[in-house]
Protein backbone atom coordinates (compact mmCIF):
# COMPACT_ATOMS: atom_id res chain seq x y z
CA UNK A 1 0.00 0.00 0.00
CA UNK A 2 0.95 3.62 -0.47
CA UNK A 3 0.36 5.96 2.47
CA UNK A 4 0.49 9.71 1.90
CA UNK A 5 1.09 12.12 4.78
CA UNK A 6 0.62 15.84 4.14
CA UNK A 7 1.21 17.43 7.53
CA UNK A 8 4.35 18.21 9.51
CA UNK A 9 4.87 16.03 12.58
CA UNK A 10 5.11 19.29 14.54
CA UNK A 11 1.55 20.19 13.57
CA UNK A 12 -0.41 16.93 13.54
CA UNK A 13 -0.08 13.31 14.62
CA UNK A 14 -0.88 11.92 11.15
CA UNK A 15 2.65 10.59 10.50
CA UNK A 16 2.70 8.88 13.90
CA UNK A 17 -0.72 7.31 13.30
CA UNK A 18 0.31 6.22 9.82
CA UNK A 19 3.50 4.56 11.10
CA UNK A 20 1.57 2.86 13.92
CA UNK A 21 -0.90 1.38 11.46
CA UNK A 22 1.01 0.37 8.32
CA UNK A 23 2.11 -3.14 7.42
CA UNK A 24 5.66 -4.26 6.58
CA UNK A 25 5.26 -3.90 2.84
CA UNK A 26 3.78 -0.39 2.79
CA UNK A 27 5.62 2.73 1.70
CA UNK A 28 5.09 6.33 2.81
CA UNK A 29 5.05 9.38 0.54
CA UNK A 30 5.46 12.75 2.27
CA UNK A 31 3.72 15.58 0.39
CA UNK A 32 2.84 19.24 1.05
CA UNK A 33 3.79 20.14 4.65
CA UNK A 34 4.44 16.43 5.23
CA UNK A 35 7.91 16.96 3.74
CA UNK A 36 8.91 18.80 6.92
CA UNK A 37 8.93 15.32 8.48
CA UNK A 38 11.52 14.29 5.86
CA UNK A 39 14.09 16.66 7.37
CA UNK A 40 16.62 16.03 10.12
CA UNK A 41 14.90 17.27 13.27
CA UNK A 42 13.97 16.17 16.78
CA UNK A 43 11.28 13.83 15.35
CA UNK A 44 13.52 12.19 12.72
CA UNK A 45 13.74 8.90 14.60
CA UNK A 46 10.12 8.29 13.60
CA UNK A 47 11.09 7.67 9.99
CA UNK A 48 14.84 6.92 10.07
CA UNK A 49 14.43 3.12 10.06
CA UNK A 50 11.76 3.15 7.36
CA UNK A 51 13.94 5.46 5.27
CA UNK A 52 16.88 3.06 5.65
CA UNK A 53 14.62 0.31 4.34
CA UNK A 54 13.94 2.47 1.28
CA UNK A 55 10.27 2.91 2.20
CA UNK A 56 10.04 6.70 2.58
CA UNK A 57 9.51 9.01 -0.39
CA UNK A 58 9.13 12.79 -0.47
CA UNK A 59 7.67 14.97 -3.21
CA UNK A 60 10.56 16.91 -4.67
CA UNK A 61 8.57 20.03 -5.58
CA UNK A 62 7.30 20.35 -2.02
CA UNK A 63 10.79 19.79 -0.57
CA UNK A 64 12.32 22.48 -2.83
CA UNK A 65 9.44 24.92 -2.27
CA UNK A 66 10.09 24.75 1.46
CA UNK A 67 13.85 25.22 1.10
CA UNK A 68 14.79 22.00 2.89
CA UNK A 69 16.56 20.03 0.11
CA UNK A 70 19.87 20.02 1.99
CA UNK A 71 18.34 18.98 5.31
CA UNK A 72 16.80 15.62 4.44
CA UNK A 73 17.09 12.46 6.53
CA UNK A 74 19.40 9.89 4.89
CA UNK A 75 17.90 7.56 2.28
CA UNK A 76 14.70 9.52 1.68
CA UNK A 77 13.80 9.01 -1.98
CA UNK A 78 12.70 12.07 -3.91
CA UNK A 79 9.99 11.77 -6.57
CA UNK A 80 8.29 14.24 -8.89
CA UNK A 81 4.55 14.12 -9.67
CA UNK A 82 5.16 11.44 -12.30
CA UNK A 83 6.94 9.43 -9.61
CA UNK A 84 3.91 9.98 -7.35
CA UNK A 85 1.68 8.52 -10.09
CA UNK A 86 4.02 5.55 -10.47
CA UNK A 87 3.92 4.89 -6.70
CA UNK A 88 0.11 4.89 -6.81
CA UNK A 89 0.15 2.43 -9.70
CA UNK A 90 2.79 0.12 -8.19
CA UNK A 91 1.67 -0.03 -4.57
CA UNK A 92 -2.03 -0.83 -4.87
CA UNK A 93 -4.54 0.79 -2.55
CA UNK A 94 -3.55 4.24 -1.38
CA UNK A 95 -4.41 5.69 2.01
CA UNK A 96 -4.32 9.42 2.71
CA UNK A 97 -3.65 10.35 6.31
CA UNK A 98 -5.45 13.68 6.00
Amino acid sequence: MLHTVNKSSFERNSLKSCINTIDDTSVILLIEDGVISATKNINSSMIANLANQGRVYALQGDVEARGVSSKLVDNIKLVDYTGFVDLVVEHGTSVSWV
Binding site: E32, F84, D86, V89
Partner: peptide, 19 residues
Protein backbone atom coordinates in the same frame (compact mmCIF):
# COMPACT_ATOMS: atom_id res chain seq x y z
CA UNK B 1 -5.09 24.71 1.03
CA UNK B 2 -2.58 22.99 -1.25
CA UNK B 3 -4.79 19.92 -1.75
CA UNK B 4 -6.33 21.06 -5.05
CA UNK B 5 -2.93 22.17 -6.44
CA UNK B 6 -1.33 18.84 -5.56
CA UNK B 7 -4.27 16.92 -6.99
CA UNK B 8 -4.07 18.95 -10.21
CA UNK B 9 -0.33 18.29 -10.63
CA UNK B 10 -0.98 14.62 -9.91
CA UNK B 11 -3.83 14.40 -12.45
CA UNK B 12 -1.78 16.20 -15.12
CA UNK B 13 1.18 13.85 -14.57
CA UNK B 14 -1.11 10.80 -14.66
CA UNK B 15 -2.63 11.86 -17.99
CA UNK B 16 0.84 12.57 -19.44
CA UNK B 17 1.89 9.12 -18.26
CA UNK B 18 -0.93 7.60 -20.35
CA UNK B 19 -3.35 6.84 -17.51
Amino acid sequence: HQASDTAYQFAKAAIERGH
